[in-house]
Nucleic acid binder design. Structure first.
Length: 429
RNA sequence: GGAGAGGUGGCCGAGCGGUCGAAGGCGGCGGUUUGCUAAACCGUUAUACGGGGUAAACCCGUAUCGAGGGUUCGAAUCCCUUCCUCUCCGCCA
């Protein structure tokens, strides 16, 4: 949600931000509505002030036992214009909100221009892509060969975009999630572990900007709940409708949850394997900060997500998304892309966004500054730390051996009961 | 699912239809006292929007007592609808 006063004071900056989003300028149009809105408010409030004063006089007159008919008649005469003025002010206010709430957040100046993913800019590469002495298989071949990754069974029960993991792979997925949570909740990580609800109401989905824009991307129950598409929804809403103390900021939350996405509009995209599922586990990171802290917190959060892949010893690159590829709530987004030898490509495994005060305004999440009066909106940030399903894919594909077995990265072995290798199909016979 | 209770300021908690933005307490802030801290005492302390003002301080106005309607000259207070929370019973992981 945008602040109309910001638009009033910086119309050209607002339009420049929209341009980065590949949208036409709107400041002039919005300010015209705002102008009429403010005029209507002034007019309506003046009438209300008159009524209030008269009613007070009526009260005083009646208390004294004096006649008040003349005063009451005067109020009655106000009634029609009063009702009309109030309705007009409300109508214009709602119109403005309706226009503002669907607009995306303004990208920071250092966000690159672009209309789609081709405009994204790589900012670093970490680790070396592994050299294979054989042709690496993708995770589907590896997993199905051992029977521990079963798409056929899942499709019988739930249709496409679901999977059964069994035995070592089921355990490996859990190990990965535990490893991530332990890292993020360590002293160095600084996040507080949270186990949130997976079903949320409209207002929570609205607060982070999922509604009204992305209703078709989420699963909905017939009694009104939304299945969370990411733990960002419950974690960020932890501070909705609250006034925090500056001394308590930043707040850092992490959660391991399933994420549910209808993937409407992704028909035919990544239909093979576990890359894009209706349900996938993810470890999420959310930070609540002051406006001054948010840029540094954004770098920190991204670094914490990268740390997972560093410790797993898997190559990745980090890119900054261009204005046209960022999610609407974000002012700046870093994507971490992991090297997948089975696809011979870097694929998104994390997305870390600084949402500025966009979500805070929608949620009513404020804080009291140490200095000065009043309250200010907090800044909210969220990032994957990491997508667990895709991390599983990355481990399988990067640590595979020629016989189809998979070496377990050192960092995960404590979570696998010390197991060093998931045996391949031949070894099982 | 059945039966009840309740939603008031950062938090807790009062509130006969008329000067209630709302008693009191806690917390916060400022001060007095104090070797320091604590305690005590005094004062102060809501938010949003509109207007004015030096985009400060501040001033004026309006709204806000879960939300939305209604009654009334006037509603935190009465009526209706709705959402939410809690308690007990039943059922259940």
């Amino acid at each position: 949600m945008h602040d109309i006063r910001f638009i009033r004071d910086h119309p050209e900056a607002f339009d420049a931000g929209l341009k980065k989003r590949n949208l036409p300028p709107l400041a002039a149009e919005l300010l015209a509505i705002d102008k009429r809105r403010r005029a209507a408010i002034s007019e309506s409030e003046a009438a209300q002030a008159r009524r209030k004063a008269l009613s007070r006089q009526i009260g005083i007159a009646k208390a004294k036992g004096e006649p008040a008919e003349a005063l009451m008649e005067e109020v009655a005469n106000l009634e029609a214009s009063l009702k009309k003025g109030e309705a007009e002010a409300q109508r214009l206010d709602e119109e403005l909100t309706r226009r503002l709430e669907v607009l995306p957040n303004l990208p920071f100046d250092d966000v690159p221009d672009g209309t789609d993913e081709t405009g994204n800019v790589e900012i670093r590469r970490v680790g070396n892509q592994r050299n294979f002495a054989f042709t690496p298989k993708d995770h589907v071949v590896l997993g199905e060969a051992t029977g521990e990754m079963d798409f056929a069974a899942a499709s019988k029960i739930s249709g496409s975009r679901f999977v059964f993991l069994k035995n070592r792979l089921a355990k490996l997925e859990r190990a990965i999630a535990q490893f991530m949570l332990d890292l993020h909740t360590s002293e160095e990580g600084g996040y507080t572990e949270v186990n949130p609800p997976f079903l949320v109401r409209d207002n929570a989905a609205y607060g982070v900007g999922q509604l009204p824009r992305f209703a078709e991307e989420m699963f909905h129950t017939d009694n009104g709940f939304w299945l969370i598409p990411t733990a960002e929804v419950p974690l960020t809403n932890l501070v909705n409708d609250t006034v925090l103390d500056e001394k308590d900021l930043p707040l850092r939350f992490t959660a391991w949850t399933p994420c549910f996405r209808s993937e409407a509009g992704a028909a035919g995209k990544d239909t093979r394997g576990m890359i894009r599922q209706h349900q996938f586990p993810k470890v999420e990171l959310v930070s609540i900060t002051t406006p001054e802290q948010s840029a540094a917190e954004h770098e920190r959060m991204t670094a914490r997500a990268e740390e997972v892949l560093k410790r797993l010893g898997i190559a990745f690159r980090t890119i900054v998304l261009c204005g046209g590829d960022m999610s609407p709530a974000s002012r700046k987004t870093f994507d971490i892309e992991v090297w997948l030898p089975g696809q011979n490509a870097y694929r998104e495994i994390s997305s870390c966004s600084n949402c500025g005060d966009y979500q805070a305004r929608r949620m009513g999440a404020r804080y009291r500054p140490k200095e000065g009066k009043g309250t200010r909106f907090v800044h909210t940030l969220n990032g994957s730390g990491l997508a667990v399903g895709r991390t599983l894919i990355a481990v399988l594909e990067n640590y595979q051996n020629e016989d189809g077995s998979v070496t377990i990265p050192e960092a995960l072995r404590p979570y696998m009961g010390g197991l060093a290798t998931i045996p391949g199909p031949v070894a099982r016979k």
